[in-house]
C-alpha cells in the first residue's frame, strides 16, 4: 500500500478523552479517568487502520471521540482540513454524511421500533430530503442487496434477524450515504466465527468498490491482521506502537505488542523464535490510577528504573522503508528484538 504518497484525509492530534469519575462515595471528589490520553495518527484515503488492545484500553472511546459522538477533552481531529471538534453542531451534523460508524452489538444498534427499510433509509432522507420515495426505496433495496440481504426483508423488524444479518443491516445503514470513513467498533466480536469472516469480507469488498477508509477496532489480532493496512496498538488510552501491518507482525517492538502476539492463538512459525517474550499476565491497571512513567511497566518483563520516571514518547524505528513508518513508545525497544 503506497498510501503515504497521498494526503491523509483524517489527522488526529493529541486526542484526549477524560471522564470525570466520582471516587470515594457520596462526598468523594471527581477524578479524571483518562480513557484516551494524547493519541495521534493519520488515515489515508482508502486505508484501513486497525486499532487493537485489551478490553477497557479505550478503543471504543477513541473511535467515538474521533466521530465526536462523545466530547473530547483535548486535541484535534482534522477532517479534510476542518477540526471536527470545534465545528458548530450543525456543521458537524453535515459532516456526518462522510463519517459513519458500525457498532459492536448489531441488534442493540438498531431501533427496535423501525423496519429495516426505514432504518437504512433514514440517513438518506435526512441528508437528501428532496429525494422521492421511489428513489429512496430503490437505493435502499440496492444497498440491502449489496450487503447480501434479500430486498424483501426491508419490511421486517430488527428482532426478526440473526446477529450476522443485523450487522449487515448496520453496514448497509452506514454505507447508504457513501461515506468516506467508517469506524468499525468491534463489528464482528459478537458474531460466530464463520459469520465474522463474511462480514469482514463484505467490509473489504465495499472498501475496494468505494475506496473508503476504515478504522477497524478489535481485540482480535488475527482479524486485525487480515483487514488492516496499518495497525495501532493502544494501551491504557495511549499509543504503544503504530506500524504498517506486515512490519508490525514481523517485527513487533513494544513489549506489550509482543505479549499480545504471544497470547494470540495464531499459528505462526516465527513465534518459535519469540520464546523469550514475556507472557501477558494479569489485568491492566485501573485507568483511574495508572502507574507513573510508562503505564505498562507493572506488567513488563523488560522494565527498569528509567521506565518509572516519565512516559516514553513515540520514537521512529528506522530512517527509511517500513521502519520509517514504525513508531514505538518504549525506552528499551532496541533491546527486545533479537530477530535479526
Amino acid at each position: 500500500m503506497s498510501a503515504s504518497a497521498i494526503q491523509p484525509i483524517l489527522r488526529v492530534r493529541d486526542l484526549a478523552v477524560h471522564f470525570p469519575v466520582r471516587v470515594g462515595g457520596l462526598f468523594g471528589r471527581w477524578k479524571p479517568l483518562k480513557a484516551v490520553d494524547g493519541v495521534s495518527f493519520d488515515i489515508m484515503a482508502g486505508e484501513t487502520l486497525g486499532i487493537v488492545g485489551e478490553s477497557g484500553c479505550g478503543k471504543s472511546t477513541l473511535g467515538r471521540a474521533v466521530l465526536r459522538l462523545i466530547p473530547a477533552t483535548a486535541g484535534q481531529v482534522v477532517w479534510l482540513g476542518d477540526d471536527l471538534l470545534t465545528l458548530e453542531p450543525d456543521d458537524m451534523r453535515r459532516r456526518r454524511r462522510d463519517l459513519q460508524i458500525v457498532f459492536q452489538d448489531p441488534l442493540a444498534a438498531l431501533d427496535p421500533r423501525m423496519t429495516v427499510g426505514d432504518i437504512v433509509a433514514e440517513p438518506l432522507v435526512t441528508f437528501h430530503p428532496d429525494l422521492g420515495g421511489d428513489e429512496v426505496r430503490r437505493r435502499v433495496r440496492d444497498m440491502v442487496a449489496k450487503v447480501g440481504l434479500s430486498p424483501e426483508m426491508i419490511n421486517r423488524y430488527p428482532h426478526e434477524f440473526s446477529g450476522g444479518q443485523c450487522q449487515r443491516i448496520g453496514v448497509a445503514r452506514a454505507m447508504i450515504l457513501r461515506p468516506k470513513l467508517i469506524v468499525c467498533d468491534e463489528p464482528v466480536s459478537a458474531l460466530d466465527v464463520s459469520i465474522q469472516a463474511q462480514i469482514i469480507n463484505l467490509l473489504m469488498a465495499l472498501q475496494r468498490e468505494f475506496g473508503l477508509s476504515l478504522i477497524f477496532i478489535s481485540h482480535n489480532l488475527s482479524v486485525v491482521r487480515h483487514i488492516s493496512h496499518r495497525v495501532l496498538v493502544l494501551y491504557l488510552g495511549r499509543v504503544a506502537e503504530l506500524a504498517p501491518r506486515d512490519e508490525l507482525f514481523a517485527r513487533p517492538r513494544h513489549p506489550y505488542t509482543q505479549a499480545l502476539m504471544a497470547a494470540a492463538p495464531v499459528p505462526d512459525p516465527r513465534r518459535e523464535r519469540q520464546k523469550l517474550r514475556a507472557r501477558l499476565e494479569g489485568d491492566p491497571p485501573s485507568p483511574l490510577d495508572p502507574p507513573s512513567g510508562c503505564t505498562f511497566r507493572t506488567r513488563c518483563a523488560r522494565a527498569t528504573e528509567v521506565c518509572a520516571t516519565a512516559m516514553p514518547g513515540l520514537e521512529t524505528v528506522g530512517p527509511d522503508g517500513a521502519a520509517a513508518q514504525h513508531h514505538v513508545a518504549c525506552y528499551h525497544w532496541r533491546d527486545g528484538f533479537r530477530n535479526k
Partner: peptide, 26 residues
C-alpha cells in the same frame, strides 16, 4: 444511553428528531 440512539446521532439526525422519532416511543 442506548446504542440505537447513538446510531441515530451518528446518522447525522438533528437532536430534536432523534428524540421524537427514536427515543420518545421507547
Amino acid at each position: 444511553r442506548s446504542n440505537y440512539i447513538r446510531t441515530a446521532r451518528a446518522k447525522g439526525l438533528p437532536e430534536r428528531l432523534t428524540i421524537l422519532r427514536h427515543a420518545l416511543r421507547a
